[in-house]
Amino acid sequence: MKNFKAITISALLLLLSLTSYSITLSTEELREAGERIYQNETGGIREKLIHWNVGEEFASLGIGHFIWYPENFDGPFDESFPGLLAYYRRNNIPLPELFRDTVYCPWDTREEFLKATSSKKVTEAIVFLENTKDIQVAFIYERLQGSLEGMLAATDRKEHVKEQFYRVAHSPGGLYPLIDYVNFKGEGVKESERYMDKGWGLLQILEGMEGTSKGREALEEFRKEAKFVLKRRVDNSPKERGEERWLPGWYRRIDTYR
């Protein structure tokens, strides 16, 4: 794993530059954020690094449970796993066979996935994802770099959103909620990620925040607004999706933003 380590250290020493501000995160802080995301998404169970939830039409992979769509499925949610594969390739990281020759999820249904879980290809891919957790959190961190620009382009409250973003980012422990939530529920800028014309991404949280103080007050308001937009999502969701079953787990995740 020496090659992975060399690339990892380079990736973890990123500088996050947004507009006229700069935010730095140490290697250990970034690794800690990655471990928290890993626990949030998988419960620390490595077999869940490749997973397919009941009632969903796609697989979820890696520490961030990045979405991967089958070839003939065009879903409403941001498909993030192909972006991770591209990130591996840009960093010259050899991919396992399961990821090497396709941009699409190799299974069309959850049933097909379950039949393949004990295969050599899946086992090798799980080991690969476990051994490259630092690369995945660096990818999530890089995604945050572009999120503010996209959110500002999608809102009429540009100064307000920017102020709230940095209010959280400059609070002790504030980068983890931003990094995690943008991976968890996205930026909130896609029209397809709406129920009843209401989104549930980072943008919607920042738009709803109104305070000015940094620190504990900022993180508390972020958590409160996150729970509000997620509850609104569930209330507005199609009943056949049964999204209310996910809300307690979502709330527990938001509570890690203390």
Rank of each mutant, 00 (worst) to 15 (best):
E35S: 10
I37H: 04
K214P: 03
K185G: 02
E149L: 05
W250V: 08
A169Y: 03
E187N: 04
E32N: 12
L18A: 13
G55I: 08
E207Q: 05
S213E: 10
E57T: 04
G188N: 03
R90D: 07
P238Q: 03
A33C: 15
R157Q: 13
L18S: 12
A138W: 02
R241Q: 14
A154N: 07
G242Q: 05
D134W: 00
I140R: 02
L12R: 07
Y181G: 12
S22Y: 13
K185F: 03
L12K: 09
G55V: 09
E220W: 01
F222S: 10
F165R: 08
G43W: 05
N3Q: 14
T123P: 00
V234G: 03
G174K: 02
V137L: 05
F66H: 11
L13P: 00
E220C: 05
G188E: 00
K239H: 05
A33T: 14
E207H: 03
N72L: 15
K239L: 12
R232W: 05
P238Y: 14
R253C: 02
T256W: 06
K227I: 09
I205R: 01
D197K: 11
R232K: 05
Y69M: 04
I140G: 01
C105E: 11
F139H: 08
R216N: 12
G55T: 10
I63D: 10
L12C: 15
A226I: 08
P106S: 02
L230M: 13
E220M: 14
Y21L: 08
R46K: 12
R143V: 01
I67C: 10
E149G: 11
P238K: 03
S26Q: 00
L230E: 09
N53C: 14
A33V: 14
A6H: 07
G215E: 15
D255N: 13
G64H: 11
I140V: 09
G201F: 00
G55Q: 07
W200C: 13
M209W: 00
G146M: 06
K121F: 01
K224I: 08
R36N: 07
T109K: 06
Y104G: 12
K2M: 15
Y181F: 15
D74T: 09
T102H: 08
R90F: 02
G64P: 02
F222M: 09
S60T: 10
E47G: 03
L219Y: 00
F222I: 03
Y69F: 13
S147A: 10
E221G: 14
G34C: 06
D134R: 02
R232L: 04
N131C: 15
L152D: 04
H160F: 14
H160Y: 04
K115M: 11
P82K: 11
E193M: 05
I23V: 05
V189N: 07
N40F: 13
R194N: 15
A154V: 12
A226K: 14
Q204H: 08
R157F: 01
Y176M: 14
I205D: 00
N3T: 07
E130S: 06
D108C: 04
G242T: 01
T109W: 06
G173S: 00
T24R: 15
K214C: 09
